[in-house]
Simulated assay, not measured.
Amino acid sequence: MTEPNRNLMGRLDAGTVLVAEGYIFELERRGVLKAGPFVPEAVLKYPDVVQGLHREFVRAGTDVVVACTYYAHRSKLQSIGIENALEEMNVKAIELAVEAARETGALVAGNICNTWEYDPSDMQASEARVRRIFGEQVQWAKAGGADFIIAETFTHFGEALLSLEEIKATDMPAVVTFSPVAPVTCDGFSLAEACKRLEDNGCDVVGLNCGRGPATMLPLLREIRQSVTGHVAALPVPYRTHDRQPCFFDLRGEDGKNGFPVALDPFLLSRFEMADFAVAARDMGINYIGICCGAGPHHVRAMAEALGRLVPASEYSPDIGLHPIFGDQQVQRQNFVECLYGPVPEVREK
């Protein structure tokens, strides 16, 4: 029997579950993962960095440690010639996640994702390949101690359904999310309808992750919340998407160059904007709330605090009142201004 503190559905029934994702982007920023293939080789080459990031997110308030197995699947590893590391990478990733989670009582999630192998024009062959990819990753995650499985960033309902079937074959809870690059899936379902169909097929949590920032994801989440009866997942990217550029793939700088994937810095949302999203999602009736590619621990901490939590990292939350220039020390602030601009003339009333 699952221990109470390792029961995802029990936690969701009791309140909000906060989920920090975005490992792939953050590890790339730290120089231990290559943009382009985005395969999490750091799990094997720099396990201390991966473990450190797990612990940073836990201190910031995540309720879930997600094993770093996004794109650690057979097709991706074949494409860069390291398929022989497939099982080792998955087993090690779960081991790192379990170690970090068990220190604090956080949940552990196995992680599978879109395969780039799903092909409706060759359904029989592609389904067999996709099922194998999902099946082996789910089995490694379960054997390693995962509490539930996240299957994410799907653009085809059909592939999402295959992931659900492979997860449910192991009797594990399933969180399945679509990447809302467009308002409809590639096989023609609205995102609300696709989520409803997953729920009808036994999915425990349905929703959206990645692709869109809060401003352009929230309207779609509202439709999903209205169409399903169970738990909804909401994990946007922390980037300033808008109606003309609704997805972070679309974001372009003033020079017209595409920001994705390694020039998105000018579009990054502040911690306060992500905190506002967490509250908006909660008030909408969503209680599986998180953040995807681009996430930093400071975002997670602000989201946790906005949801009314005091987390370990709250010990170091900002207190600008103590800043020597922008805080409450008027004399020091005036001295700083005079250092830059010279003496401030006294204003006399006429």
Rank of each mutant, 00 (worst) to 15 (best):
A125P: 03
S163T: 06
A151Q: 01
I133M: 15
K168D: 09
I150F: 14
W140F: 14
E152G: 03
E136Q: 15
V130L: 08
I149G: 05
L164Y: 04
E166A: 06
F148Q: 00
E166Y: 02
A146N: 07
S163K: 01
A125H: 15
F157Q: 03
G135M: 10
R129G: 09
G145K: 11
E166K: 01
I133C: 15
A128F: 07
F154V: 05
L161N: 12
D147V: 07
G158Q: 05
E152M: 02
F154Q: 13
V130Q: 11
S126W: 09
F154D: 14
L164T: 00
W140I: 10
I149C: 03
V138I: 14
V138Q: 11
A146M: 03
F148E: 01
R132H: 12
D147S: 03
A128V: 07
Q124G: 13
K168C: 06
W140H: 14
E136I: 11
T155K: 07
A143K: 10
H156N: 14
K142M: 13
I167Q: 01
R132E: 12
H156W: 15
Q137T: 07
G158H: 03
A169Q: 08
E136R: 14
G135W: 06
L164W: 03
K168R: 11
V130F: 10
G144A: 06
R131Y: 14
D147Y: 02
A146T: 02
R131M: 14
R131H: 13
W140T: 04
G158R: 06
A141G: 02
Q139W: 08
G144Y: 02
I150N: 13
A151H: 03
A151W: 00
A125L: 13
F154G: 15
E127L: 07
F154N: 11
G145W: 13
E127G: 14
A141Q: 05
F134D: 09
E165L: 14
